[in-house]
Design a binder for these strands. Structure first.
Lengths: 361, 361
DNA sequence: TAAATTTGCGCAATCGTTCCCGACAACGTT
DNA sequence: AACGTTGTCGGGAACGATTGCGCAAATTTA
């Protein structure tokens, strides 16, 4: 009777023990280990390693040599807990498989690692919910700052605003939030879009459609403006039915396919498309190929893309290339400056970099 | 006199104070805050939140409601320190801008986030030194496990072996280390290479060169084997001068350019090249274009690549595509199984996935 | 030589959690 | 009535590192 009771009693503990105890023997050495081995206190060891003046030269030497020997590394987690910073920055992009973002991430890492920061990358896949979850995740995980490029679905940025108001440093790149006051870096989207559209116009096209991402994204708005300006310059009126938005930035191929097929079933079919995004550009060409529409004979295509593979073909697609790597570097530098600033920053930069028009037709 | 001394004395402290005090007011609520507000002890609050049986239902209710109200989130850093795990996994790849890796990372994240793990991505840029630094970084940072794809420069894996012997779980994907016993996942490189070479042979080519990465990489060895097997089948002897290694996997364009120009200055020029890598494939085509060598008329090219852009062109390049996303998922699943295993794992899997030959010529 | 300072080091608190104990009621059992 | 069980909770020690404070011994100063 008693035995049974006891077993019932300890059952949850057994379960707990098993659950909380994965096999894991990876245990680095600590200050305490050094202190014990050398017959000193942890404080002395800590101070010796940090080269404080109040430790004798001999003791320092002994400690340093021993630490070197056993390859001691301070536990960054303990440090984070104490210093209230993690030496890591969180990155939010729509997807790493996007050429623009993978190049930008290259730039981000190059700076971050030089400055001793870790980079934690998260992907939204253009989903607002995913964005909220990831941001929350990163914040609770205690990143020191955030590099953000909004998802296509995002129109409400209150989840970011809340964190920003509470003092979490953040820098926007590419897809910026207009209602949050902080450093921002983007390409000259309007100019890039203008250039691409002008180039289509110069090549004789007049019925130019515009395939773009969701209409609350900063880049969509700016690129649309450039497109409009170019048409204006040629005295061509804007036609609503020529402008197609993909709310998920072409994450789903059906979206793109639907938009293109609508365009191609218009009475007055377009003879060119200006595409406002990396994924959309590839998606657009894929759909056109599927529909057996000749590019550029039947329809010319020009769009934003950072794919280096496009260079290989004397092909149908002219493209606007953003300085992705440089943008990543700059954004990271700005963020680290924010993070390490001793005083609240009130003046914010809004840097705009030129794009490059690569003509291939 | 005294005053000056005092000032000299406190000077370093002033400096330290300024240095250690970046402006940062982002301070989330803690258990103690809740305890104080509710007149309970932190232990009780902790237990209430973890739904222990030894806390009364009423207390639990009060605590839970208050925690919900102030949006309490346990500090993951403190948890990591206590539980000796970080719920994060480190990833080592050569570069995220590589199509294969960016897709693999997509797969890695899809599993990791579902299981509550963070992903920390590091790039080697095919450098052995960078690999050592990054691995050390990740280990000291306390990741729970490692997903590794070796750099092209790496022939000595002792830095990884050391960690593995100390019990840090790791899984290799794509570029595996043969002398470390753990889970591994790779594409059927030999078969993929064989298929691609056979396809070149079937299209009538007989002088097939092989452009590949450094010769200590597992994938190089396997792909070379497949290439050799295919030639054998057609009774074609292996020609040493047709095989070109790029020690940095084409990270430097000169490397690729040098290899190609050597091939093209041979007395008996090749009429086809089988390329064993994503970056090399793109690099090879770029060089051929630069040299004004017609593809596939003058020289046919077939190689490993996961670029989806290639699909757009009824082009010169047939390619072997690896199931990158799936490989990322599987590797992550295997790693998490290792991490969460309650007992030491002694039996390891070596999973091999089929490649897909995409014919475009 | 006595007093004042400096040198060199240890103690203990701290960061936010978890969890082992122990305390102390309010029961039920003999 | 005396004792064992429960049910609830708080105290305090970890986890690994830093750091203000205190204290003895060594050294300098008056």
């Amino acid at each position: 009777m008693l035995l049974i009771r006891m077993i019932i009693l300890i059952l949850p503990y057994i379960d707990q023990y098993l659950n909380s105890s994965p096999f894991f023997m990876f245990e680095p050495t600590t200050l305490k280990d050094i202190a014990k081995a050398l017959g000193l206190s942890t404080s002395t060891v800590s101070r010796a390693l940090r080269d404080t003046h109040e430790i004798s030269v001999e003791t320092k030497k002994i400690v340093l040599e021993y630490a070197e020997k056993i390859n001691y590394r301070p536990n960054p987690i303990a440090l984070s807990l104490k210093e209230r910073r993690t030496k890591s920055i969180g990155v939010l992009v729509s997807e790493v498989a996007n050429h623009y973002f993978s190049q930008a991430i290259g730039g981000i890492e190059s700076i971050a690692y030089d400055r001793g920061y870790h980079v934690i990358i998260t992907q939204t896949h253009e989903s607002y919910d995913r964005e909220k979850i990831n941001i929350q995740h990163l914040a609770s995980r205690g990143v020191d700052g955030l590099l953000v490029s909004l998802s296509a679905e995002t129109s409400d940025t209150s989840h970011l605003k809340l964190l920003h108001d509470r003092g979490l440093p953040m820098v926007f790149f590419d897809r910026v939030a207009n209602d949050i006051e902080t450093h921002k870096i983007s390409a000259n989207n309007e100019k890039g879009a203008y250039d691409a559209t002008i180039q289509l116009l110069e090549s004789g096209r007049r019925k130019i459609a515009h395939l773009t991402s969701s209409n609350h994204l900063s880049i969509s708005i700016e690129r649309l403006a450039g497109y409009t300006a170019a048409l204006n310059e040629y005295g061509i009126p804007l036609q609503e039915e020529y402008i197609k938005h993909c709310p998920h930035g072409g994450m789903f191929q059906e979206e793109t396919e639907h938009a293109i097929s609508e365009l191609m079933s218009l009475e007055d079919k377009p003879d060119a498309i200006f595409v406002a995004g990396d994924r959309l550009s590839i998606g657009c060409l894929t759909v056109l190929k599927k529909f057996n529409i000749a590019v550029p004979e039947e329809i010319a295509v020009s769009g934003f893309s950072n794919s280096d593979v496009l260079d290989l073909f004397k092909s149908s697609l002219s493209s606007v290339r953003q300085p992705a790597y440089e943008m990543g570097r700059m954004a990271t530098e700005m963020l680290i400056k924010l993070i390490e600033s001793k005083y609240p920053v009130t003046e914010f930069e809004n840097r705009v970099l030129d794009t490059e028009l690569v003509i291939r037709s």
